[in-house]
Write a protein that binds this DNA or RNA. Structure first.
Lengths: 213, 213
DNA sequence: GCCGCCATCAACCGATCGGCTGATGCGCAT
DNA sequence: ATGCGCATCAGCCGATCGGTTGATGGCGGC
């Protein structure tokens, strides 16, 4: 990695935070803050005009949310890498931000050095995640294996698969060479096992615990 | 976090690597290597007997793969955190390891300091991922967003979410403060967009193309 | 042998759904 | 200004679903 100067854009609704970041980055050689924005909309505009290497993006802002801004930047194929820098690490924030295309996700309580490292990494296109965020991501990946599937019988499973394809009970009956009454019995049983009350919810539950997919 | 000594178990089939790690960890105060194993099976046995804080685990080994070993340790509820330390960063290795319960995943080309940091983080139960691994995880999470959703409107999406939870049209109407007729209209529209003919299939289609999940 | 689980079927009923037709108002783009 | 997409609503009807109750037979475990 060359030690070329990394140009930055700061997007945060708090002037104090913007100043703090600017000061912190100024104290370290190799960083050049091109500009600041106080909201997502303005952030996107500036990113387009200034073409920074890295955008430091807050998530929760009054004037255009960070996630929307990231989505917009991604959609427009902007070269800049987005490093999310926020106070929150809830699923509701992290996952969408990452899905939207953030290159990294740091919490604001990260030490200086970590911030510098993260900015350099982001500039190089490498992903950097705060431990807390990494944990969440991991748990998202890990979850699917966990939930206790109160084992569906083979027949119930077959019926459920057909249900997921929009097949009516009568059609399922014909398909499986059984009567419609039997199909309904299987359904009633699997509703109980999945803890749901109709076919739509059964399909959702099945996807959630990996029975379908 | 206290600066208590962290006890370790090294599991790797290469003596050279084991020696290297042991030496590296010996040079830094606060680490105590309790033992070494050359394969997954032996690793599990030693982990059970020595009860280390952290297990440094290679993945590809002749005598019992790392993933199997991690699975076994997780299954037995072993206290030790597993830090995967390997040369490979392919999906085929990383994802299963994380699913199996690894607390962290480092590549062997990581610098000394990063290793120390990662071991301390793992001991504290925090997740540490190599940038390359983090990228992969992120891409796994990000992928589902890709498929061409013939964009559902916001309202349709809301309705669909409720449908997936087993909510009836009447209940959805109450929930969204609209009439049942409107709910049905939204449904009819989204059936069209998803190319399905009932709510169960709509839920399935939504999961398949990442609209729900 | 008895019990539990699975698979199969029947008949009935009220609730719900899906399709259809048609209508209004809003915002946005050309 | 005209049209398009979205959200909103109404009424009607046949089809479908879900719940209930009850029954039969096979298979495997204790």
């Amino acid at each position: 990695m060359t030690d070329r100067t990394i140009s930055l854009l700061i997007v945060d609704d708090h002037p104090v935070v913007r100043d703090g970041l600017r000061g912190m980055l100024a104290s370290e050689p190799g960083f050049d803050v091109l500009g600041e924005a106080a909201g997502g909309v303005e952030g996107v505009e500036l990113a387009l005009r200034l073409d920074p290497d890295v955008v430091l993006m807050d998530l929760r802002m009054p004037a255009g949310s960070g996630v929307e801004a990231i989505t917009e930047l991604t959609r427009r194929g902007v070269r800049a890498k987005v490093l999310v820098l926020t106070t929150y690490d809830t699923d509701a924030d992290t996952i969408p931000a990452i899905e939207a295309g953030a290159t990294g996700y740091l919490l604001k309580d990260a030490p200086r050095d970590e911030l510098f490292t993260a900015v350099r990494a982001a500039a190089a296109g490498r992903t950097v995640l705060s431990p807390a965020v990494a944990s969440r991501l991991v748990s998202v990946v890990r979850k699917p294996a966990a939930p206790a599937n109160e084992a569906l019988s083979a027949r119930e499973h077959e019926v459920l698969e057909l249900v997921a394809r929009g097949t009516s009970n009568r059609e399922i009956a014909r398909e499986l060479f059984i009567s419609e009454a039997t199909v309904k019995t299987h359904l009633t049983h699997l509703y109980g096992k999945l803890g749901v009350k109709d076919r739509a919810a059964a399909v959702a539950a099945a996807y959630d615990c990996g029975i379908l997919g």
